[in-house]
Structure formats: structure tokens, C-alpha cells
Write a protein that binds this DNA or RNA. Structure first.
Lengths: 209, 209
DNA sequence: GTGGATTTGAACTCATGGGTTCAATGTAGT
DNA sequence: ACTACATTGAACCCATGAGTTCAAATCCAC
């Protein structure tokens, strides 16, 4: 047939990718395995050749997407390693990058899937605590602790500072994006990043200017 | 006995209540109408006597629960109408009340349902924008504007202040409650409220004390 | 009581979809 | 070329559950 089956390419990747795409589009219950197989360009028995269940298929797909999202987010913290002499500017860059990463299609879908299926798949909590906001908070706290040590931020409680920075940044997202159904314009993202950094520096910047 | 259709109205409430309970427990797709009828203490045809669809049943149940949640949350802002001379204390009371309201069983279930079914029921967005965080933010912004007028807060942008207060307060909830699957202790709630108010006052309190 | 509407249980129809089977058809490695 | 295995399409089995039908039971106003 004219299908794209080229030898022994690892179909597993195609299946996981297609699975996440379909789950993201339809949710767990509404996604049927045939749709996933079609999306992956693969026959249905092939899916069951690699994954025993629809459930484990879901788990693996979410796990992979979750890990990828975490890597990207932690990577976005890089400018804080050497912020130069414009700390607020570096924070704003990081804030904007994080906003972009949290508003893209896959991230919104991932968040929806986690929220909706967490009762049916309680073991996804391990994936979340392993790659969810907790790890990102810790990574950010590490950066902030360094900055506090060099006297550019209040020294007290970098964990709390990181938690509040992310809260200030990402909290308004839900309402503004209408639960992730509305894209947010680039200028609005910049405004949100600036407002976050401005308030954050008032609360956590070096006192006695 | 007030109306000639008393029975009808009673059953309708029971059905809506049971529907929300079952939807909250199982999600939309997994909840079957028979379960809902049982939960409501009613026969299945009676459900279809009041609601044409499983879908409209879901809509009405979510709408009712959403409205109730909004009323409670806006009610929790009351102490800000007359905060006395301890503004931080009043803010902390409000913060704590809001945290309690956002962590109870029904609120978590409601949030899960909205996130998971928003793609299948886009019209629920109207319910959300009508009774979701947006209205709460506006109500809080009104209170903060009054306080700013009397010189007890920075005057600039009460809308932003309200948005950031709620973000600081509710943003950390997601990670701490593990997506709503873990109850948060009373002392931890108090700590969160205090940390929020402390940071909020540093950023938005009257400058030059 | 009586009559009209409502509720009820049980059985029914029908569509969906998870998971399997199987014979035919590649595809690798040797 | 030959063998061992992966893949494929199509059909199949079977559980689940939405929505309906209907006769019997129940309720309410008058």
C-alpha cells in the first residue's frame, strides 16, 4: 500500500506522539484507539503490540509530553545564571519565556488532561510532582538564592520568593486565556511579564535603594 | 405547597444535585445517567423528564454549582468593607476564607470539570466568565479601590492589585494540593494567607510609612 | 373519591468502542 | 533465498451506556 511504513522505524514514537495529539484534542474517554492509530499512521493491532492498554498508552503519552514541557521550562531559566547588571531585564526575559511556554497548545492540553484524568489515574501525580510546577519552583529558587547571596535580592526564603514569582506570573493566565481556550497576544504577554517583575521587585528587591 | 408543581421542582433540585455529585466524582464521560438517577433517588426516565440530554443535564448542574461557588467567594470579601484599623488582619481573614473556599471538595471538582470538559462544552465559558475568577477579581478590585481612596493602599491600578492578590493567594494552591487531590491543613492555609498578605503589603501597601 | 399528571421499574433498541483473532503481507538479518 | 518477526486490514466478540417505551403505581388538586 501507499502508507508510510518504512521498514523498522520505531513505531513506538509515532504511537506516543499520535496518542498525545488525539488525547489532547478529545480527552481520554472520547479518544478511541482507532483514531490514535490513524493519527500515528499505524494499524490498531500495532498499537496493542506496543502498549497493553489504552490506559498505559495514555500514561506513557502524558509522561513523555510532561517531561518535554519541564525540560523546556527549566531551560527558560538560563538567563538568570548570569543576569548582567540588569536584573529586572533578565527576570522579564525569563518571565516572558515562561509565559510563552505555558500558553502554547501542548501545555494547555497537557494541563487539561492532568486536571481531568487525575482522579482516574492517580499515579500521574508522580509524573506531576516529578516534572510539574514543583520542580520548576525548586530550579527557580536555586537561581534566586544565588542572586540573594550576591546581595541583589532579599536573602529571606528563596523558596517562597520562587513560589510567589511563579504565582504572580502564571496565576492570571487562567482567567486571561479563558481556561486556555483563547490565545494571548504577544504585547499582552509582555505586559504581564513586566507587571509581574515590577511587583516582584517591589516585594523582593534589595531594600534601602 | 406553594405551587401546583411542587413535586416537579423538588425532583429537579435533587436531579441537579445528584448530577453534580456524580459528575464531580467520575467526570462527564464516565458518569452514567443511571448513577445520577440513583444518587438523586429518582428513576432514570424521570431524569429525562426534566432534562432532554445528558449534555444539558451537565450544563445545568455545572452552572448551578458555579453560581453557588461565586456567591460564597464574593461573600468572603465582606470584611474588606470595613476593615477597622488592622488592614493586614482583615486581608488575612479574607485570604484565609478564600483559601478555604477554593480547597473544598466541590470547588476542586468544579475546577476539574471545567478544565476537562471546556473543549466539549465551549458554551461553559459564558458560565465561567460570568461567575469565574473574573467576577471575583472585579469585586475585590472594588474593595481595594475604596481602600486606596482612603489612603491605605497604593492608588495605582486596583484591578492589577486585585489580580495579583488572587494570583499570590491561589497560584500556589495547585502545586501544594497536588492538583486538588490532597487536603491542606488548617495551619498551612494560615501560613499561605499570611505569606500572601505580607508580600502583597510590601508591594501595594502605603509607601513611606 | 376521582382524574390527570407524574413517577417508577424493567425491559428494550442501538451505537460506540475496547480488545482480539487471523490470514496475508512486508521487512530484516543471515 | 529463507526464516523469524512485525505489521496490516478486516472482521469479530462483548461490555457499556444513552435514550425510549409502557404498563403499573403514586401523587395532587378539586
Amino acid at each position: 500500500m501507499a502508507t508510510s511504513t518504512r521498514g523498522r522505524i520505531d513505531k513506538r514514537q509515532a504511537i506516543l506522539g499520535g496518542a498525545f495529539a488525539v488525547f489532547a484534542r478529545l480527552g481520554y474517554a472520547q479518544a478511541c484507539v482507532q483514531d490514535i492509530a490513524d493519527e500515528a499512521g499505524v494499524a490498531k493491532p500495532t498499537v496493542y503490540n506496543h502498549m497493553t492498554d489504552k490506559a498505559t498508552l495514555f500514561r506513557h503519552a502524558v509522561e513523555a509530553a510532561s517531561q518535554a514541557a519541564l525540560d523546556a521550562r527549566i531551560g527558560a531559566l538560563a538567563p538568570l545564571a548570569d543576569p548582567g547588571d540588569d536584573l529586572a531585564g533578565a527576570l522579564e526575559d525569563v518571565a516572558h519565556a515562561l509565559l510563552r511556554l505555558h500558553t502554547d497548545e501542548r501545555s494547555c492540553a497537557l494541563k487539561r488532561l492532568l486536571h481531568s484524568e487525575i482522579t482516574r489515574f492517580p499515579d500521574l501525580l508522580d509524573v506531576v510532582t516529578g516534572s510539574g510546577p514543583h520542580h520548576l519552583t525548586r530550579a527557580l529558587a536555586d537561581r534566586l538564592a544565588r542572586l540573594a547571596l550576591s546581595g541583589r535580592l532579599r536573602a529571606a526564603d528563596p523558596d517562597l520568593a520562587a513560589e510567589q514569582f511563579l504565582a504572580l506570573l502564571l496565576g492570571p493566565l487562567e482567567a486571561r486565556s479563558r481556561l486556555g481556550t483563547r490565545p494571548i497576544g504577544e504585547t499582552e504577554l509582555h505586559d504581564m511579564a513586566r507587571a509581574t517583575v515590577c511587583t516582584f521587585m517591589r516585594a523582593w528587591g534589595q531594600d534601602t535603594p
